[in-house]
Computed example of a mutant assay.
Amino acid sequence: MKKVAFIGLGSMGFPMAKNLLEAGFELHVYNRTKTKSIELEKFGAKVFNCVGDAVKNVDLVITMLANDEALDSVSFGQDGILANLNKQAIHISMSTVSPELIEKLSQEHENHEQKFLSAPVFGRPEAALSRKLWVVMSGKQSVKEEVKEVVNALGQGVFDFGEKVSAANLIKIAGNFMILSMVEAISESLALLEKNGVERQSFIDFITSTLFNIPIYQNYGKIIAQRQYEPAGFKLELGLKDVNLMHEASSNARVPMPIVDILYSRFLTSIAKNRAHFDWSAIELIAAENAGLK
């Protein structure tokens, strides 16, 4: 499998697509704004002006898009993936989107005699650039075998969550919930300590070298302690989309998740304060403001 199309060249998609080029794949690219496509053209990518042309005659198309609406728009219609991808070719959705859309796409691809997998990723743009993403995958086992070479070029590990195609998206939603719960816990802890005269960086240095000596606490701890919210690794406005996915999933499954309600309030308040372009960990500022620190 050597000919790949990549749709969506945002902060995650661009480094992922570049890694595929460096791994030797022939790459077709499409992005709504053409600047990123032109930049990849310098590395050997073939740039297309529409999705339909980009996916014609490829073995595999990868989509890495912001939300359900974006994935829906490139998948359906006369110029979409479904109408233009060859029979038996594969579509891998690596976006953080709803399980419902993933199930719908899987059925539509089957109706078109095409193949489909879901494979969202964990990791920020710097992890994408250094091939340090964690990939969670679900769908038919035979199709997973076909895409191993491509997926392995994008991350440091792939975890298989069975043949129910939307399972990986639920894993992604649950994982993001745990990340944001961590961010909220750090934020409230820092507000408590700072209000009592304890220096915030000293606390982060302590917990990330002892109790929580793991990369995700270290990385987010540094960002939050130093308030490095610009430029955003993952924008707060996209984080609200993820929190909405958490709420929808919990509601559909009749699983109460009260922390999700807290997170929703944090994100909505942050956006109301014109912080949509900040990193999603900037919800920390709300905890500080509520404590009278800002």
Rank of each mutant, 00 (worst) to 15 (best):
L71V: 14
K164T: 15
M1L: 12
N196K: 12
G77A: 00
N274W: 13
Q114C: 08
S118P: 02
I179L: 13
I262T: 10
K2Q: 14
L236V: 08
D72V: 07
V29P: 13
V47K: 01
N244C: 07
A282W: 00
S118A: 15
S106V: 01
N176E: 03
S265G: 08
K42I: 00
A282Q: 00
L20S: 04
L101N: 00
T96H: 03
V4P: 03
G155D: 01
L268C: 10
A168P: 05
E41I: 02
H277F: 13
Y264D: 07
M246S: 02
A70P: 07
I173R: 07
T269Y: 02
V165I: 06
S270E: 04
A119R: 03
E26Y: 12
F161W: 12
K36Y: 05
G80L: 11
R266Q: 02
K148L: 11
K115R: 11
V143W: 01
K87H: 10
N252L: 10
E163M: 12
L192H: 11
R227C: 09
F177W: 12
S202R: 11
F122E: 09
K195G: 14
A66C: 03
A54I: 08
K273I: 09
V4I: 13
Q114W: 01
L65A: 01
D59L: 07
L71Q: 06
E69Y: 04
T208Y: 04
N169M: 13
M94K: 02
E41Q: 12
H247P: 02
E26G: 14
V58K: 00
P15K: 03
T35F: 15
Y30S: 04
E194Y: 12
K235M: 13
K104P: 00
L65E: 02
R227M: 10
E26I: 15
L192D: 11
I223E: 00
I7H: 02
S202K: 14
H112M: 10
T96V: 06
A287P: 02
I207E: 01
L129K: 15
A276V: 07
N19M: 00
L20P: 01
A272L: 13
